[in-house]
């Protein structure tokens, strides 16, 4: 799965809010950077991914955060300004336009422009060259959550339909072509094995593949609990319960801990069953590949977590150890 995924130029990670898109995108980029010059893109990030690498928050200029891995944070206003500089050659004129009272109004009101130019900026990065070869082999985007992501993917299509002529329209047409080029672009779904994220993923998969027509790279299912217990083993009054009581007495923890430990085991089993149910549902409704990622109980929430997730991802395929370049 990863080999095919990483062979593209642009991979956009999307899914419901709160499923761990940033962690997944970062782990993927980290993994890719072992063999490719990789750019990780965050969009209007509040808490920059840079913290995973112990670096200050990323700005609109790509900066290296790890060997072979650069990070950039693209915001709508900056992308619009960037575009203006591209089509208006005179710097002074750009200043005049952005200072105009109507400017902010237009950039907020013109439907889809912000998303379009954010998308445009990503493709501009794809096109950047260093000594006649691409500056980045792979761009991984920590994408917007579902609703906003759909807006972004739709923006070039809609702008094409609305504007028809002019530089923005031709830019939009170019973007649609790139976006629909399965060799170059793909989206990776991120989800949790729970009802809402799964339902949203299935819906999003359909919209993106059928209506918007972007290539599907697979789905990463995050925070899956381990399978530890069977229902019959957790029955009351059984051998295990007695054994647990004994063990807690030995370590000098009271009865309340026995109750809590038993409850934690029960909770784990019930949630594991829920997870299995939704993993099955995903398997029956979506094509693979599936990237199963474990629930992390203990972590500092920083770089170590991302490295662990990357290691799990790497276990799915043998990542060539050959050094990049």
């Amino acid at each position: 799965m990863l080999r095919e995924l990483l062979a593209r130029r642009l991979v956009i990670v999307t899914g419901k809010g709160g499923v761990g898109k940033s962690t997944i995108a970062t782990a993927l980029a980290l993994l890719a950077s072992r063999q490719k010059r990789t750019l990780l893109v965050e969009l209007e990030a509040q808490r920059s991914i840079a913290r995973f690498f112990g670096k200050p928050p990323a700005g609109y200029e790509a900066a290296e955060v790890a060997p072979n891995l650069s990070l950039i944070n693209i915001t709508g206003p900056e992308a619009i300004r960037d575009y203006l500089q591209l089509i208006v050659p005179v710097g002074l004129l750009v200043e005049k336009i952005t200072a105009h009272p109507l400017y902010r109004y237009f950039t907020e009101a013109a439907p889809g422009i912000k998303e379009l130019l954010t998308f445009g900026k990503i493709w501009k990065l794809e096109d950047e060259k260093h000594r006649h070869r691409p500056l980045y082999d792979l761009i991984v985007v920590d994408g917007f959550p579902t609703g906003q992501a759909l807006n972004m993917f739709r923006s070039p299509i809609e702008v094409c339909e609305t504007l028809k002529v002019g530089p923005i329209a031709s830019k939009a047409r170019h973007l649609v072509d790139l976006m629909r080029d399965a060799e170059k672009t793909a989206f990776l779904l991120a989800t949790l094995p729970e009802e809402m994220p799964v339902a949203e993923s299935i819906e999003l998969y359909r919209t993106l593949t059928r209506d918007i027509r972007i290539a599907y790279a697979g789905i990463a299912v995050n925070a899956i609990l381990p399978k530890r217990f069977r229902r019959e083993n957790l029955g009351r009054g059984g051998e295990i319960q007695r054994a647990v009581g004994e063990a807690f007495r030995e370590i000098g923890a009271g009865d309340s801990h026995v109750v809590h430990a038993y409850r934690a085991a029960h909770e784990e089993m019930r949630w594991r069953l829920t997870h299995e149910h939704y993993l099955k549902r995903l398997a029956s409704e979506l094509p693979g590949p599936f990237l199963h990622l474990p629930f992390v109980f203990k972590s500092d929430g920083g770089g170590e977590l991302v490295e662990r997730i990357a290691a799990v991802m790497a276990g799915e395929i043998a990542v060539p150890l050959r050094a990049a370049r």
């Binding site: 647990v244 063990a247 038993y262 934690a264 784990e268 109980f297």
Partner: peptide, 19 residues
């Protein structure tokens, strides 16, 4: 030990709750 699973699970949840 037959209780090992429950105890290591509990240790994980202790870590989680603490974090």
């Amino acid at each position: 030990h037959p209780a090992a699973g429950v105890l290591s699970n509990y240790a994980d949840y202790q870590d989680l709750a603490e974090a």
